[in-house]
Design a protein around this nucleic acid. Structure first.
Length: 298
DNA sequence: CGCCAGGCTAGCG
DNA sequence: CGCTAGCATGGC
């Protein structure tokens, strides 16, 4: 078993591991202390989180408190580069904030969650998770992804425990709509099966990389169950488009309450307006802070 | 019981 | 183009 420590105090802006993993952007980590990602879950901070990437198990926790406490990890391989990638540890949070126009809501959101980072999750699992996210609460999206991993993913044993990787497109394409409905996916079940089949046939969501932002969003909507909002989530939380601002119910409420002039009617035009209001290049970062701030009730 | 949750698709004008 | 009905499920 490989182990290591990453001093979060050395990262620009630090890291809040729990908030980053439980703020509704990533659905591929599990808290090992039995926590269920309850919306009002206890904020311990000393719990382990685990994920499986390319067959490797990675377990990590933060000791000493966020945002400066050390990250301790245990894994089947060297997890330093994996964690740097998944948690975007190279992002310079103070520089990102400095590039974001400060208004009262944005300032309050940044102040409330120092060390919150946007994640960089693998493309296919992210695509499936956000197809499942339609009209669904965060805790239940987590439950769906756990069920998919348990039923269709490859199991890995590490340190005496069994972990389940998220299923590949081929594994998920072998599922039937009825099976996924039985797992509680509801009307999203056929979307997931059809998109898995598309990816198994060679069309990866990662192919959107390299396209201009709005072209990339259009390209992703070719997958079944993927509209503008889900496409923006995949672009922001997996494909490095930090300017993407997913317009979900919370952000639409924020626009109505705080930026009414940004409501231009259509998704595309409202998206442009709020993206500009949030400073363009890192607008998705501001969106992530505001989303979490509003959703946790302030 | 009604309402809501990180919306999308198909079908219409 | 834009607009809307219908769609599953569980928690409060």
């Amino acid at each position: 078993m490989a182990t290591g420590t990453i001093p979060a105090a050395d990262l620009p802006g630090g890291l809040d591991l729990q908030t980053t993993l439980e703020s509704g952007q990533s659905y591929h980590w599990r808290r090992e202390d039995g926590g269920m990602y309850e919306e009002t879950g206890a904020r311990g901070g000393d719990g382990w989180y685990a994920t499986v990437v390319d067959g490797a198990v990675v377990r990590v926790r933060q000791v000493g408190g966020a945002p400066d406490g050390d990250l301790q990890w245990e894994a089947t391989t060297d997890a330093d580069p994996i964690l740097a990638d998944l948690l975007r540890l190279d992002d310079d949070l103070p520089a990102i904030r400095a590039a974001t126009p400060e208004d009262p809501l944005v300032a309050a959101a940044f102040d409330a969650y120092p060390g919150l980072r946007v994640v960089r999750d693998p493309p296919f699992p992210t695509l499936v998770a956000f197809i499942c996210s339609a009209q669904m609460r965060v805790a239940r999206i987590h439950a769906m992804q756990r069920a998919l991993a348990r039923e269709y993913g490859t199991s890995v044993t590490f340190d005496g425990r069994t972990y389940h990787g998220f299923p590949s497109a081929e594994q998920l394409a072998a599922a039937t709509e009825g099976e996924l409905r039985d797992l509680g996916l509801g009307y999203r079940a056929p979307y997931v099966v059809e998109t898995a089949e598309m990816v198994a046939d060679g069309r990866s969501p990662a192919d959107a990389r390299g396209l201009a932002y709005e072209d990339a969003r259009e390209a992703l909507t070719e997958f079944v169950g993927v509209g503008s909002k889900v496409a923006d989530c995949v672009l922001l939380f997996s494909l490095d488009y930090l300017e993407a601002v997913p317009l979900d119910t919370w952000i639409r409420t924020a626009i109505a309450d705080h930026y009414p002039d940004c409501d231009r009617g259509s998704y595309a035009e409202t998206s442009r307006a709020i993206r500009e209001r949030f400073g363009g290049e890192y607008a998705g970062y501001a969106q992530t802070y505001v989303f979490h701030h509003l959703r946790t009730g302030e």
